[in-house]
Design a protein around this nucleic acid. Structure first.
Lengths: 331, 331
DNA sequence: TGTGCTTACGTCAACGTTGACGTATCGAGA
DNA sequence: TCTCGATACGTCAACGTTGACGTAAGCACA
């Protein structure tokens, strides 16, 4: 900037004015400065600018998600990006992979970067450590999972209700033995989903059979194995509810290799792009990812605009998409 | 920092030393400083630090992709993140949506942020504007598409060969009338894919029928319509090659509603998670997204480590994954 | 006892930018 | 002609941090 000023024959302050489009520079000077800047390949230093300015917005929002590679996190990221773009905010995204340490590390990094806000799909269970950041004015929005130990905005889906809807749907199809495969138990959404499953059983007056609820199923392959094992029971389930995307895939594979995909019902939690092309087409509980991301962005922008009201907790309703696999009746 | 220094009864420089883990601070002083920092909720300001330091690495890498919400960009982002993580680099991701203006804007933003490197899946066709940035020392890695007008590292897939493999595979199945649906013509990868398709036809001594090559198909729905229209021709194609993920989906739908999914062959470009669950299972050309992202990260890190050698152009080979839909013989 | 080295600090300026404020010039109006 | 206000600049310090360098104390060794 000093060089530009010298080449243009003005002071640095004038260069600053021109660069920021402030008034107080004649057309002639403006021209000279811009030419000089161009000649010298001058690039504005946003860091220095942010440092000096009063309000000092960095223009960065941190998005700490479970895994930016999976369709849920990715869709969310995309929707968030869109809703923040027009405010000139950029998104720094990271995958936490359910590792609390990484969460802490990334939060520390983003705080040091003076991020304007944080979107968190937390890997940790207690969030007291965020209190001081929030007190310092950092807008915080939790997504998919609720905050514990810090009172801030959140956007979640009613997982309990979603799972209950799914289970009830299966029960309505005449099924009496409905099995459920669930994600890692320490993940809150997984707990809520199993709770919904159990609630639906109770509601229907069915007895809960612990053998039919398999928690902490880790991946597609394990899901496959679990389903196969359950089918081998003396009194096997006639319907399955899978608590997560990849578990659904594993279940489909197992049912198919057992030749039972048209005999055994299946409802999966989370929709995915080709779900209707599978045979039979998959009935799922869908979360509106787009909507979730948009709401998160909206909350964040409101806070950035100065909204000091009490934390808001949006709970969106999931919906049941019937495509066939969930409508297979018993027997 | 000044406050921390005062509370701990030391100079700011000493606080700096403690914060950065530099030697030259006794255990006792270190303790006092850390306590003071804790009491005052002191947060290190990375921006100021970066500004002052000589090498001034911001620790940010920009990833300008087509759409962080689609599985290709998302997978790439994830792999990139992983390979950069251990070097302490964070990824600022943005979706360009094939809009050159957005590309320019984001590049300008990242340059102003003093990003340590840029990963670009460009929306624009000419990249001369990046020359000055590169000359200024900004490591640049293009991905999925080659640079034009600036000489920098790139990681691409041999799209031409991929499409040729697909077409040849169909031709080997006895097909004489193979149709292709392609993405927007101005996208380089789309051009390469159609070129591969034509090359394979020529190689096999088949005449090219312009009616069977439909370029600039925009989305799933349009793809569906196009396939339906092609099937209504007097001499319809017996096999289809779809140039992109969503076009494949559209084609599957059209074939299915025509009741021809087991009579007409189909090979899609790009694999996707449930491709083997579709009926018939989809034969695809797969790009190893993980590998691409990892290589991009590696190239970037090498440049950051000071590698000044000539730009490298990695061209990865796609692979043909046979699952059924592409092995349907003619007739 | 003097010299030199190490350790543990402190002082000062600078990184690139902008807010606050000062000044010179010019034209309008009394 | 003088004053006033607007316009177009310039000067200076400060944002939070760290590199360069200075210094005082302590210790080892000739």
């Amino acid at each position: 900037m000093k060089d530009v000023a010298q080449l243009a024959g003005v002071s640095v302050k004038t260069v600053s004015r021109v660069v920021n489009g402030e008034p107080g520079a004649s057309v002639e000077v403006r021209e000279r400065v811009l030419q000089a800047a161009d000649r010298l390949d001058y690039r504005h230093n946003l860091g220095a600018s942010t440092l000096r300015r009063k309000d000092s917005r960095s223009g960065i929002v941190g998005a700490l998600l479970q895994d930016v590679g999976n369709s849920f996190s990715a869709g969310l990221l995309r929707a968030l990006e869109d809703s923040l773009r027009e405010s000139g905010l950029s998104v720094l995204a990271a995958s936490l992979d359910e590792e609390p340490e990484r969460e802490r590390g990334m939060v520390a990094d983003l705080v040091a970067r003076r991020a304007d806000g944080l979107v968190l799909m937390p890997a940790s269970h207690r969030h007291e450590y965020l209190i001081s950041e929030q007190r310092a004015g950092l807008p915080l929005v939790f997504v998919d999972r609720r905050p514990h130990g810090v009172d801030c905005d959140s956007v979640t889906v009613d997982n309990r209700r979603g799972a209950a809807m799914a289970a009830a749907h299966l029960i309505a199809g005449g099924h009496r033995r409905v099995a459920m495969l669930s994600d890692l138990e320490e993940i809150e959404t997984a707990q809520e989903r199993t709770a919904g499953y159990r609630a639906a059983l109770k509601e229907a007056g069915l007895e809960f059979d612990p053998a039919l609820l398999v928690p902490s199923v880790r991946g597609e392959h394990e899901a496959s194995t679990v389903v196969t094992d359950l089918l081998a029971l003396p009194d096997p389930p006639t319907a399955f509810l899978t608590g997560r995307n990849i578990l659904t895939v594993g279940a489909v594979r197992a049912l198919r290799s057992a030749g039972l995909s048209h005999q055994v019902a299946l409802v999966g939690f989370d929709d995915f792009p080709m779900a209707d092309l599978v045979e039979p087409a998959l009935t799922v509980i869908r979360q509106d990812v787009q909507r979730i991301g948009t709401e998160v962005g909206r909350l964040l922008l409101e806070r950035l605009a100065g909204d000091k009201s009490a934390p808001k907790h949006l709970v969106l309703e999931p919906s049941l998409i019937c495509r066939g696999s969930g409508e297979i009746a018993r027997g």
